[in-house]
Design a protein around this nucleic acid. Structure first.
Length: 423
RNA sequence: GGAGAGAUGGCCGAGUGGUCGAAGGCGCACGCCUGGAAAGUGUGUAAACGCCGAAAGCGUUUCUUGGGUUCGAAUCCCAAUCUCUCCGCCA
């Protein structure tokens, strides 16, 4: 959520920035400002009312103490009107608070000044590319055929047990999966991230704080009986560690990483690019999350991007880095880099990581603040990124490392798999 | 699932209708003391919102949350949530 103070101080700037996201905020902001003025007006009246009541109450208490019963009783009558007014003002205020909040959550985060305008994915800027991103010259199989051939991932079995999008990893497939998780977690630890194992199910407050609610409700699995949500990413529980927290400037940077299974309903996305491991309802991911000083957050974003890239380099996969344009960047992000691996059998770029700086947008909802050098309260910046999402990395490895003899295990994973080929 | 107890500031903990944003302690910050440290000692130590704004100052709110009683609620009543203990069940 944007800060009301920012909107109040410079509404036209906010409107201008949001245009980059193809979002016309003019009317919304006008409404917000109008209600904001009313709220402050009402608040003032209410405060005065309460002050009056407080004074009367004290006087009455004093009179009783002095035994001036009659005077006290007379004074009681004076409070009646104040109380009636108070009730009215309270209702008015809470109505308006609710209303402004409803409008505030409709405003996306402002994109960083380096974010270009653009309609959608086609306007994203490729900022880096490395590795052999060409098709195989010899016949090659897509991963959904290879996994069948070597019996390492079973989609039909998942359908039987649960439904589409819940594959069963078997034998060396399961071990490979576990190897990737451990490789990612160990690498993150080496880079100073503290490992965290979070809950996979969160309450409403947590889902709201990181922005999944209210807008992305349909994307999450919901446990009705307990009113809990299955996490769509470890970002939700891990970031919520810092909900309602006040840090010291010296606490930065705060670096956490977590492995978790992720659950996404992917409502409405059937039919396109969903074959095999490309889009699942349940998948594994290692997430990195940082909380930073506002002055440092962009430096940190670059570092996180570099870290994500290093993982793909070590796995020997061709990849590229995109800077998302205004049309493709997420609602809550100010700047996002996507990492994509090239799948040489599908001849397609597959997104395996999305690394974002949310600036204070999440922190505002989280109430994640810190005392700066001058002892002033400020919102911290939050960042997160996948490092990495497993299924598409797995797909790329399976496809890119296929040979007539079998699927060769990338060098860095062998200490974890204890085998070097899947055949 | 059954029975009971509880929820107070960063933490512990006092407080059963008024002057309580809340004693005391711990912690933390700064100072004194010390060659340096410990101990000791002094001072300070919440946040949100508003008053055009910075500082100062002022006002309101906040003792889990939401309602209620009352001129006045941390304190009384109701509900929700959470935690703990015992029993049952169970990885």
């Amino acid at each position: 959520m944007l800060q009301i103070q920012v909107i109040r101080e410079n509404p036209s700037y906010v409107i201008e920035r949001l245009k980059v996201k193809n979002f016309d905020a003019t009317e919304l902001i006008n409404n917000i400002l109008e209600i904001d003025t009313q709220i402050r007006q009402t608040k003032k009246t209410l405060d005065n009312n309460l002050m009056e009541q407080g004074k009367l109450a004290k006087s009455i208490g004093q009179l009783f103490k002095e035994g001036k019963r009659d005077e006290a009783e007379a004074m009681k009558a004076q409070t009646a009107q104040l109380k009636a007014d108070e009730k009215e003002l309270q209702t008015e205020l809470s109505d308006k608070d609710r209303k402004i909040n409803e409008l505030m959550v409709l405003l996306p985060n402002m994109p960083h000044t380096s974010v270009a305008c653009g309609k959608g994915a086609e306007d994203n800027e490729v900022v880096y590319q490395e590795g052999d991103a060409s098709a195989f010259s010899t016949p090659a199989l897509p991963h959904w055929e290879l996994v069948k051939k070597y019996d390492i991932i079973d989609f039909e079995l998942g359908v039987k047990i649960t439904g589409a999008g819940f594959p069963v990893y078997k034998g060396k497939g399961a071990k490979m999966q576990r190897a990737l998780i451990n490789f990612f977690l160990d690498s993150a630890s080496e880079h100073g991230y503290r490992e965290v194992e979070p809950p996979y199910v969160v309450n409403e407050a947590s889902a709201y704080a990181t922005g999944q609610l209210p807008d992305k409700e349909a994307q999450m699995y919901h446990v009705d009986l307990d009113n809990l949500y299955l996490i769509p990413t470890a970002e939700v529980p891990v970031t919520n560690i810092y909900r309602d927290t006040i840090l010291k400037a010296s606490d930065f940077p705060i670096k956490n990483c977590a492995y978790s299974a992720c659950f996404r309903r992917e409502a409405g996305s059937y039919g396109k690019d969903v074959r095999g491991l490309n889009r699942l309802h349940q998948f594994d991911k290692v997430e990195i999350v940082q909380v930073e000083h506002p002055d440092k957050s962009y430096e940190t974003l670059e570092e996180m991007k570099q870290y994500g890239m290093s993982l793909l380099q070590r796995l020997g996969l061709p990849f590229r880095v995109l800077r998302l344009c205004g049309g493709d960047i997420s609602f809550t992000s100010a700047l996002t880099y996507d990492l994509e691996v090239f799948s040489r059998a599908q001849e397609k770029w597959l997104e395996v990581s999305s690394i974002s700086n949310f600036e204070s947008y999440q922190a505002n909802r989280l109430k994640l603040r810190f005392k700066d050098e001058n002892g002033k309260m400020r919102l911290a910046h939050t960042l997160n990124g996948s490092a990495l999402a497993l299924p598409r990395v797995m797909a790329a490895i399976i496809e890119n490392y296929q040979t007539p003899e079998g699927i060769v295990v990338p060098e860095v994973l062998r200490p974890y798999t204890h085998f070097d080929i899947i055949d």
